[in-house]
């Protein structure tokens, strides 16, 4: 897309993220978190939270609502994971999109069922370094602001993704790396 000055400007679409009780329940189950605040409306109402709320890392599930999210199979497109063969993509290297190096959250309030959040992603800094266990590492920061239906800021997420030159070696090496 071209801006007024004729320069290329990167505009990432905003993502609408409706927060639902069932989604919170399933997310908490995946963490084996049995806190009633995540699945029992009556118990949650009697608790300090005053009702069901999202767990601290729940907004990562915004990926479900991103139409272009690369790590989800999409209608009509080849998937890079295995089927009969080890990868569904032939002729070019399959990519898993790199690793997750860091994640930071700042909370103004906690999302609850019925909220309709809008996520706006902004690219941040980019840097690189050499690693003994995985070759050249490229770090990319992304900042996501989540606002509610009133336009108020709910939380800010900052992630650092890492693209490695080769898979992370599993023996030796004291340098920390990352997870998927």
């Amino acid at each position: 897309m071209r801006g007024l000055g004729g320069k290329e400007t990167q505009i990432l679409p905003k993502i609408t993220f409706p927060v639902e009780a069932t989604h919170i329940m399933m997310f908490a189950r995946a963490l084996d978190d049995t806190n009633p605040a995540y699945h029992d409306a009556e118990a949650a109402r009697r608790s300090e939270a005053g009702g069901i709320v999202a767990p601290p890392t729940f907004t990562t599930a915004v990926a479900q609502f991103d139409p272009d999210y690369p790590l989800r199979p999409k209608h009509g497109e080849s998937w890079f994971g295995s089927a009969k063969e080890a990868s569904g993509i032939t002729g070019k290297p399959a990519t898993s999109g790199g690793l997750h190096g860091e994640q930071h959250f700042e909370y103004l309030r906690y999302p609850k069922p019925g909220d309709v959040l809008t996520a706006e992603v902004k690219p941040g800094k980019e840097w690189s370094k050499e690693s003994r266990r995985a070759g050249k590492l490229i770090f990319r920061e992304r900042i996501t602001e989540f606002r509610d239906q009133a336009g108020d800021l709910v939380l800010v997420a900052r992630s650092v993704g890492i693209t490695t030159e080769r898979p992370v070696e599993q023996t030796g090496g004291a340098n920390g790396t990352a997870q998927g």
Binding site: F27, A30, L31, D32, D33, N35, A37, S47, E48, A49, V53, P55, P56, T57, T60, L99, H100, G101, E102, Q103, H104, F105, E106, Y107, R109, Y110, R158, G176, T177, A178, Q179
Partner: peptide
């Protein structure tokens, strides 16, 4: 998320104002 479960069990629900991590292994 598993680390967050420990935190909410310790400090209570909806009480975190900041939570940040680096994945080391």
């Amino acid at each position: 998320g598993l680390t967050g479960k420990m935190l909410t069990n310790y400090v209570g629900i909806a009480r975190l104002t900041k939570f940040g991590v680096r994945f080391t292994n």
